[in-house]
Design a protein around this nucleic acid. Sequence first.
RNA 1: GCCCCCAUCGUCCAGUGGCCUAGGACGCCGCCCUUUCAAGGCGGUAACACGGGUUCGAAUCCCGUUGGGGGUGCCA
Length: 472
Amino acid sequence: MPTRPRVRFAPSPTGYLHVGGARTVLFNWLFARHTGGEMVLRIEDTDTERNRPELTDNILEMIEWLGLRWDGEPVHQSDRIDRHRAAADQLLAARRAYWCDCTPEQVAARAKERGGPPGYDGYCRDRGLGPGPATALRFRTPDDGATSFEDLVRGTVSFENKVLEDFVLVRSNGTPTFLLANLVDDADMGITHVVRGEEHVSGTPKYLLIGEALGLHHRPTFAHLPVLVNEQRKKLSKRRDSVSVAAFRDEGYLPEAMVNYMALLGWGPKDGVEIRPLGEIVELFRLEDVTPSPAFFDVRKLQSFNADHIRALDAEAFVERARPFLGEGPRGEATEAVLRPLAELVRDRVRLLTEVEPMVAFLRDDEITIDETSWQKGVAKLADRAAAMLDAVIAALADVAWERDAIEEALLGAAVTAGFTNAEGKPQMSKAQGPVRVAVTGRIVGPPLYESLVVLGRERTLDRLRDARGLL
RNA sequence: GCCCCCAUCGUCCAGUGGCCUAGGACGCCGCCCUUUCAAGGCGGUAACACGGGUUCGAAUCCCGUUGGGGGUGCCA
């Protein structure tokens, strides 16, 4: 009976969830869903020095926000420390590990002295040291032979054992390192596929060697995903690059757009259809098809995907999703009220949810500020004709029925009156609407004018038109 | 330095020996549509890193060069 695939996402709570980590969870999740397997979470909090437990909440929250559900309760590696120590003891008893009291400085000094490669030289291998406050437990790596493994993304990868230094299994403070805990937990949890970032490739032979030395028959299939890089083609770093998932959420990206875009980093559907529902991606996704080369995280393309997913929303859903970005309390309610009648028109014009509120603020606020550049471009440049247009519009709108078509007709007529016509005497609204738009909205770009005026109301429209006329 | 990996348009992906005068998407440019801006339609720009093989035939296989990335921690 074939084993059900079981994968894990194993973040360490030393930073917020960033897009690199998010992509890793996503690929684990896609694989699990595609194969009918399960994905578990394991918080790798063995480094007590740098852990920030509160970050675990952020990581979990972001994974949930992305809609990637895990199976069961998240496991905290720190709860399993006894098991890790037992494994360490076993290794020590089998003489596959030994105590070492060299300080990092001593290790570095010796490496420099001998002029060879940096790294630990096995100095304490046969010194027969016992445990102590300043001793760490190191794994005795084989001096010859090679360790290789199959990688779904990269094929066979092989390392000469002699290039592997004797690495630390247990720190001098008694806590197990990632190398030990990671392997032991994967084995205990029955992980069948290890799907993680490329940065773990060189640690894989160590993982395998510990497992063998422990007599564990744990031989998962590996899939090392290409790293995500920035414009400089360097691995995305939380420090250098602003890539926290929470930041994208706060900028108004939709989780479905994030997930859709990230799925295309290192993978692509054969049919070339990029924008598609998650369900279809689950169906098509295969780890074997993941490309091995680094991928650039292109925010512009992400934005395009976001705009597409926003446009796929119906009016009701759009308002719902935009709500957190409309403002707090009464102000938020007021924004929502003016947005609602224009929902579709606004939705088709934004790339980010944060752009919604600024686009309709002129409808909500009593006072508007007129953008200088827009004034120059849409009003001042037209000189006398702008004044004529405003006069004509003020007159035409005074007693017209306050509905879209009537307003359009009024503006068309005003344009003719003000002389904005083409060779056939037809009104040229592309220019004529400028002064009106700037006067009423404060900007040269915005939602369609006639519909906006309907929402604005006659009084406020006329007030703003008169104010602008007075400035000329 | 050493180890491992990678190499198709600016970017992401398709392409797994002939269907490739290399396809799609983002971006960029132009035109159309148009009440601004978007959206949409149409068109365009732009790549198989280089050199050797293998083969009747190579973007696809092999070797090398160059370039890039990852690792080299008592971080994960």
